[in-house]
């Protein structure tokens, strides 16, 4: 959150969008801290946001570990959200998500940075596509 007790407007608007779409959306702030995911993402992640709460990048990367499609561990810095934040560009990849119970779910993730100004990344958003239930 900013020093003024309010999230930057792009995060607010993205959360509002997330609350009104059935597309799974996962939102992090400028430090990579998880600040919100919507009900559709709860289905993919297996946990309600109110139960998970705000998590640092290290915490949420550990909570939802990832593998590439060949089953090799996917380092945190190779995940689309990390790439979007670090390289300030959209990033996409299929991957396997592992939840705390060890359940595996194949998803595709597209992440992109949120820029408040041309030189200011205030967060990033990831869109999940659940390949196991997709038509």
């Amino acid at each position: 959150m900013s020093q003024n007790g309010q999230h930057p407007l792009p995060l607010i608007m993205m959360r509002e969008l997330a609350d009104n779409v059935a597309t799974p959306l996962f939102l992090v702030d400028r430090n990579g801290v998880l600040v919100y995911y919507n009900e559709a993402a709860e289905v993919v992640l297996g946990t309600r946001y109110v139960e998970a709460g705000s998590l640092t990048a290290e915490e949420w990367s550990a909570r939802w570990a990832a593998e590439d499609v060949d089953g090799h561990p996917l380092p945190a810095d190779k995940r689309p959200l990390a790439v979007a934040m670090k390289e300030r560009r959209p990033s996409h990849r299929p991957m396997i998500l592992l939840d705390a119970s060890g359940a595996r779910r194949t998803i595709e993730v597209t992440a992109f940075p949120l820029l408040a100004r041309a030189d200011e990344v205030v967060g990033a958003v990831a869109i999940f596509w659940d390949c196991e239930v997709a038509p």
Binding site: N4, G5, L9, E16
Partner: peptide, 22 residues
């Protein structure tokens, strides 16, 4: 300040313009 939601259910930090009006 909100489109399609209920302001009363939102934490102040998630409300547009809160830092201005507080």
């Amino acid at each position: 300040p909100v489109r399609g939601g209920d302001l009363r259910e939102m934490a102040p930090g998630w409300i547009s313009g809160y830092s201005i009006a507080r």
